[in-house]
Design a protein around this nucleic acid. Structure first.
Lengths: 199, 199
DNA sequence: TGAAAACGTTAACAAAAGATAAGGATTTTA
DNA sequence: TAAAATCCTTATCTTTTGTTAACGTTTTCA
């Protein structure tokens, strides 16, 4: 995808949070940069500060922790979604997990440094503050649902819900990653799938 | 606690997010209101839009869902913390859970309407945008940790961690609420406590 | 293209958690 | 202050999950 198309996708993707008129867009876009990840390449690794907030124009990534030498996948992001090691990016602290491309992935990026400059730019500050606020609020709502699922639902119920709301994910992501995401082991997910099929 | 003392506590409590000089504080405070909850009184109920974002100056509340007629407690907030049915407050949608006082509780509140007015107030807008952004970012970091705990840790590990970081909660909150918060049944938590004591 | 790696399923067993009920202690409240 | 409600623990039984290993299939990649 060429940069122009990526910018278009980005503009469209963030329209739910904030819209720029053409004049503002012209000021805004020079603060953006572009990058891509080949399959299995890492965007973020444990112990390093994450300097970018990204919008995925193509591809998919997984977020995972390493615990006792084992990888545990906690989340995924796909095209037209935002991606970052958010906590590390916001707090400027070493990241505690990994973000790895599951497919060939293309990104539009905002560096932390550029973000700060925009927050000091008289013509952008208010809009960027709002942008940041609305993104954060959006993610809080997602997190709220995710925590609620862990507290109120059994693994099987979480699986059934996922199968209902995002069936396609099973065609795209290896099942053992999804198992981790649901908070169970791959073996257990395999059993749940068999169980729920028979019913 | 008198209103002046509550305002002081509020000012101090939000200083981690934003600080007001005395002139700004004078403009800001008229947008605040006060309330209190007696024990067991509800601040928010399922099906109603939550109109307030609060700061707890005294007391404690629990957040719970009702599933199959049963209450499941998902979270707590204590004095010097913020409290709201965040998702409902932000999206103006009916709330999906309950918030109930566990003790006599006192609140400093910002109504959604007043918040919007401040966001349109030339002298407050930028600071309030930032306030909102930083609050949201703060909660995202909390949620990130909480989700990570569910994905990477066993119930026993979550209990041990809680016992390490917030031992006092066991003196203050009925244990079966804490069990829900950890994502397990009260019976199971009782067993875990016995198990970990013997080791 | 051929060896190696990755992946999903299944089995067997152990460990943990859920469900239900009972009992005793404490707290609430009328 | 007496009855009711709440709370924690314990026991029993059932269900689910974790662990480990094996097997066949598919995918990867040198």
């Amino acid at each position: 995808m060429d940069k122009q198309a990526q910018l278009e996708a980005f503009r469209k993707g963030i329209a739910q949070f904030v819209t720029f008129n053409d004049a503002e867009w012209k000021i805004f876009t020079p603060y953006l940069s572009f990058s891509s990840l080949s399959k299995k390449e890492h965007f973020a690794v444990e112990g390093k500060v994450c300097h970018y907030m990204c919008f995925i124009t193509r591809g998919a990534v997984r977020y995972y922790h390493i615990k006792d030498g084992q990888e545990i996948t906690g989340y995924f992001s796909f095209e037209n979604e935002l991606m970052s090691a958010y906590k590390s990016f916001l707090k400027r602290t070493p990241n505690t997990n990994y973000i790895q491309a599951l497919e060939e992935t293309e990104l539009v990026m905002i560096s932390h440094q550029n973000l700060q400059q925009m927050l000091n730019h008289p013509l952008l500050a208010l809009k960027i503050e709002r942008f940041g606020r609305l993104i954060a609020e959006y993610y809080i709502c997602c997190y709220e649902d995710r925590v609620t699922a862990f507290v109120t639902q059994s693994p099987e119920e979480r699986y059934t819900a996922l199968e209902k709301t995002a069936k396609d994910i099973f065609q795209r992501i290896p099942q053992h990653f999804i198992a981790n995401f649901l908070g169970i082991t791959p073996v257990s997910l395999s059993r749940i799938r068999k169980r729920t099929l028979l019913q």
